[in-house]
């Protein structure tokens, strides 16, 4: 689905990403992890087209990202940022509906309303669908933003730290939901994560970044403690119980 070749990105003279090569398969949930400042957000923003790399090529569905018209790209991909400042005065329903903007001409059609209503039910937001988003909890807001991204039924979903400010239950629910979306809808999901155990439990693939370079890229079950030690400089142990793995640090 996504192929990155020799990607280099700089802010001024400061190199943030250094000759990145990687690919992301169809319907795979990939967690991008690494220490603060390692270039995780920059990598995702490059893939989402928000930032333009100085060198290298990003191919999405075998087509160079630069060759996509913005409207076409917006119909196949969605991006969920780390944080949204100054929330507008909109209801949960309107917020999710506006994810359909790339498909709308002016007023919403029945198909837009149906997708929005179904998604709100699926995400468990029915009870608050007509509440102002400024009056809902952090977890509900995060679900609303993710629902907005999914409402255009994208093939690729980029999420930058989607578990921020969420309690354990909501973190678990959102990761479960993302995992189910890769299975049910075959969406390729790329999420910047910090919780190693969540990544071990739900991701199919993990990429570790350090100082703008990839240290590890592989299936979750290929991850071992020495890789984690070298990336984060901490003592860590991977415990395996059946098919599940847990990180102890």
């Amino acid at each position: 689905m996504i192929k990155i070749k020799n990607l280099t990105f700089k802010y001024g003279k400061r190199k943030i990403l250094d000759r990145i090569d990687c690919d992301f398969g169809n319907g795979v949930l990939t967690g991008i992890m690494g220490p603060n400042g390692s270039g995780k957000t920059t990598l995702v923003k490059n893939m989402a087209g928000i930032l333009k790399p100085q060198e290298g090529v990003i191919e999405i569905k075998n087509k160079n990202l630069n060759n996509y018209a913005l409207r076409d790209f917006s119909r196949i991909s969605a991006y969920v940022p780390q944080k949204i400042f100054n929330l507008p005065s909109l209801t949960v329903y309107e917020s999710v509906l506006f994810g359909r903007i790339p498909f709308m001409t002016y007023m919403e059609k029945d198909i837009d309303k149906k997708i929005t209503s179904d998604l709100i039910r699926e995400m468990g937001l029915s009870d608050i669908s007509f509440k102002n988003i400024n009056e809902i909890s952090g977890g509900e807001l995060q679900k609303t933003i993710i629902a907005q991204a999914i409402s255009k039924e994208p093939e690729i979903l980029f999420l930058d730290e989607p578990l921020n400010n969420l309690d354990i239950k909501n973190q678990h629910n959102i990761m479960k939901l993302l995992h189910e979306m890769t299975l049910k809808r075959k969406i390729t999901i790329i999420a910047v994560l910090h919780d190693l155990n969540m990544a071990l439990k739900f991701c199919d693939k993990i990429i570790f970044l350090k100082n703008g370079s990839i240290c590890f890229s592989g299936k979750t079950n290929e991850l071992n403690s020495s890789i984690i030690n070298s990336v984060f400089s901490i003592e860590c142990e991977i415990l395996k119980k059946g098919e599940k793995a847990y990180a102890l640090y």
């Binding site: 087209g49 917006s74 949204i84 400042f85 507008p88 903007i101 907005q148 991204a149």
Partner: peptide
């Protein structure tokens, strides 16, 4: 509609085309 996309900030607006 474009202004509605803009309500969510630059990054989501871009993602909405």
């Amino acid at each position: 509609l474009k202004l509605n996309a803009l309500l969510w900030g630059r990054e989501i607006a871009f993602s909405l085309g």
